[in-house]
Every structure is written in structure tokens, then in C-alpha cells.
């Protein structure tokens, strides 16, 4: 068993076109580190110095991790992590 990470179109250049990849880790941060070892460049699109980038939404199963524990959210085998680009903008 592993953790499934669903990748949005715009980040599939890092996964060889794959819509979903597997990873391991005890927290979201570890999971992203594990992904980075096989998909270099991905981490930088998800996190910056202050944590998760505001341009992306990350969900653990059905919950936005911002309402859980952010990067320190615990993850476990069988979980699904979904990454979606935030849709936002405006006149300013």
C-alpha cells in the first residue's frame, strides 16, 4: 500500500504525464519530499519558505489540508492526496 497523489494537468510535466503517482511518508511534508526524489521540481511548485503555496490547494482525502495541519498533516497508506491549482484572480 502507498499513498496516491493525484496530479493536476499543469504539473504533469513533472510526472511524465501521469495523472496519479504513489508516494510514502508520515506527514504531507515527508510525502512531498518522497515525491521530489522521483519527480524533481515538483516540491518547488507546491511549497515555498512559508509553507504550501497559495496558488495550490492540497486535499487529504476529502479535506483541504489548510483546515487540517498544513504540511505537518499526518498521512497514511491508503490515503489519497489531491493537488488542484487554486482558481482565483480579479481586477486587482
Amino acid at each position: 500500500m502507498a499513498i496516491e497523489i493525484r496530479i493536476p494537468t499543469i504539473l504533469r510535466t513533472y510526472t511524465g504525464g501521469a495523472k496519479a503517482v504513489d508516494g510514502t511518508g508520515a506527514t504531507l511534508e515527508e510525502l512531498i519530499g518522497d515525491l521530489e526524489s522521483r519527480h524533481p521540481g515538483l516540491r518547488d511548485r507546491l511549497v515555498d519558505d512559508s509553507g504550501l503555496r497559495r496558488f495550490v490547494n492540497v486535499y487529504l482525502n476529502d479535506e483541504d489540508v489548510r483546515f487540517l495541519g498544513g504540511l505537518s498533516t499526518p498521512v497514511a497508506d491508503g490515503d489519497t492526496v489531491t493537488v488542484l491549482p487554486a482558481v482565483a484572480g480579479g481586477a486587482r
Binding site: F55, P85, A86, A88, G89, G90, A91
Partner: peptide, 28 residues
């Protein structure tokens, strides 16, 4: 897939702002 993503500008013209461009992330 999202073929169209729309929003309104309510006091300015219908042209993408810098914010719109920085968030735009659905290439299709």
C-alpha cells in the same frame, strides 16, 4: 475538464489583470 473558466470584472474592462495571469493554471 474545465473548458471555460469565467469571471467578471465589475468596474474595469474585460482584460486579464496581473492577478488573473499569476493564478492562471489550466493550460487547456
Amino acid at each position: 475538464e474545465p473548458v471555460v473558466i469565467y469571471h467578471s470584472h465589475t468596474a474595469t474592462e474585460a482584460y486579464p489583470s496581473r492577478t488573473d495571469v499569476s493564478y492562471a493554471s489550466e493550460p487547456n
